[in-house]
Amino acid sequence: MLRKQWIAPLLAAPLILLFAIFFVVPFIEIMRVSFSGAGGVMAGLAWLWTSPVVGIVFLNTLQLALSVTVICLVVGYPAACFIALQPESRRGILLALILLPFWTSVLVRTYTWSVVLGREGILNASLIWLGLADGPQRFMFTPLAVHLGMVQILLPVAILTLVGVMTELDAGLVRAARVLGASPARAFWHVFLPMTKPGLVAAAMLIFILSLGFYITPALLGGPRHRTIANLIDLQVHQMNDWTNAAAMALVLLATTIAAVAVLRWLVPDRSLYGSAR
């Protein structure tokens, strides 16, 4: 008993320390510096409220995060099913392939997309060669480019999370559904899909939160017309040198993230996530 009492905090200590030093302290410091200026936090928030740009960018960011999340789940789910159904040895190889892009920096991968999607890019060249387009089409700096870039970066998150849940799932439950009268499609719909809900929620949460703070990809592939909140914060800090406004936006972004997590937790309570029949 005595051992248990100190071992748990000890195990958590490195993480807590890391979190405190690199997140909590800088966060408080930034907030303090930012709001100590003229007007303070209220001035920042008031600017947010009155600025026409901020509201639009905010909605765009939310919409982008939402659509990227949905696309990742829709594309990732069948892929995860396929991987989870493979024998264990092959599953390892497939997961390694999924992880491969993670070893390349986001910046490099994003630039690669501009090579693919640019005016003289591979996609345009292919389309013209195939006779599907008369001249170069515009792909760069469109929502399509931003979505492609972000989905490509975030898709492994969805697949890895879903494969984890699917391989843990008791295959006997699908068998039980089948023998009790469910066709493969109905066994999937009534048993497999609901059983993977925890994975879907976890993946959605991760991807949505990561998408909200995406910076490089929208900046490079979306250009000035498809800014996200992160781009706007960067603009405030580096070009306007307005830390108060930047901090206010960061605060609202943080609040939005927390609200999104809260809504998901409320929609899918812990109990149904982790309750098991075993």
């Binding site: 039980a176 023998v179 009790l180 066994a187 048993v191």
Partner: peptide, 20 residues
């Protein structure tokens, strides 16, 4: 016949109740 058309009842060792 596919499993679902065989119309047999079955009880499993692990019960296999649907947890959701």
């Amino acid at each position: 016949l596919p499993t679902e058309k065989r119309n047999v009842g079955m009880v499993f060792q692990s019960y296999s109740l649907f947890p959701h």
